[in-house]
Design a protein around this nucleic acid. Structure first.
Lengths: 153, 153
DNA sequence: TATTGTTATACTCTATAACTATA
DNA sequence: TATAGTTATAGAGTATAACAATA
């Protein structure tokens, strides 16, 4: 009887062949790579995530956004501070409830997000370089379904 | 003319539909989830990654393993310390070169890795719950190709 | 009193640099 | 002198807790 842990690379049954392991490792290298490219814009992946969230939900309070992104409210403050400093978002007090800071993406912010999206698309090409058109489509669909299943945007 | 950033959720052209964004976000939530399950075993994902690396390359020095896992040698020390404390790995000085610490996975370590692999497989089921058998197969293949392309195990 | 945002603080992870021993 | 491993230190990232303003 063969020991599952004696398998070599390309291993069909070991830990490294699980979706958990592969999504985890690929996610890390891909995000690190994206982060390096973003450095030139003075941004980190979380800043881009916030801009993307704002582009979907036109306006939102910091608390709402923090909840949606699964980060602490205190972190949302520094993300918003940074983007406000770049002129990418505007903070306005909600007149109905002056405790709330409502964030909106500025035209400049949209432009910045567009540039980040272009960078991500270029990176996508590298990542899926070894896949056929059919496989890329299948991957896109699978990722979309899994993200949706996990409550992600 | 429509603005690409005005798209709503389910967005086909925005940042959130890129492979970069989806692999990144899914990777994070999946790894966090795995990490929570590992807590009961006193392990973190990196410890499991080291055991998996050892199960593939029967024996290896700490430096070799650090290079393979893309971590600093100093981090390898603490990972090995922890696993040695659990009886999962054995450290032996290479008699040929007494500077080298050669790590090997013990029988107990193999058992522990098996348990982690089972946990990962169970998690896999949840992650791909929304996919058909055909889609799961396509996903597996795509992940395998991309990991290989990125130089990952 | 409860809630939003902010600030202060601490914790986790990991890398870099200094050090020890072997070569 | 150079290298493997270790230890000491420092930085990034993020959360928790204390605080201020508003409800």
């Amino acid at each position: 009887m063969s020991d599952v842990n004696e398998a070599g690379p390309g291993d069909a049954t070991g830990l490294t062949s699980t979706v958990v392991f592969r999504l985890g490792t690929l996610g890390t290298v891909v995000t690190d790579r994206f982060a390096r490219e973003l450095e030139g814009l003075g941004l980190k992946p979380k800043h881009v995530g916030l801009m993307a969230a704002l582009s979907h939900a036109a306006v939102a309070s910091q608390q709402e956004l923090a909840a949606r992104m699964n980060v602490a409210p205190s972190l949302m403050v520094s993300l918003a501070d940074h983007l406000e400093g770049l002129g990418a978002v505007r903070r306005v007090r909600d007149p109905q409830d002056r405790r709330r800071q409502v964030l909106t993406l500025t035209a400049q912010g949209r432009g910045l997000l567009d540039r980040c999206t272009s960078m991500a698309r270029a990176l996508d090409e590298e990542i899926v370089a070894g896949l056929t058109a059919k496989q890329r489509k299948a991957l896109d669909e699978a990722l979309r379904v899994m993200a949706n299943h996990a409550g992600l945007p």
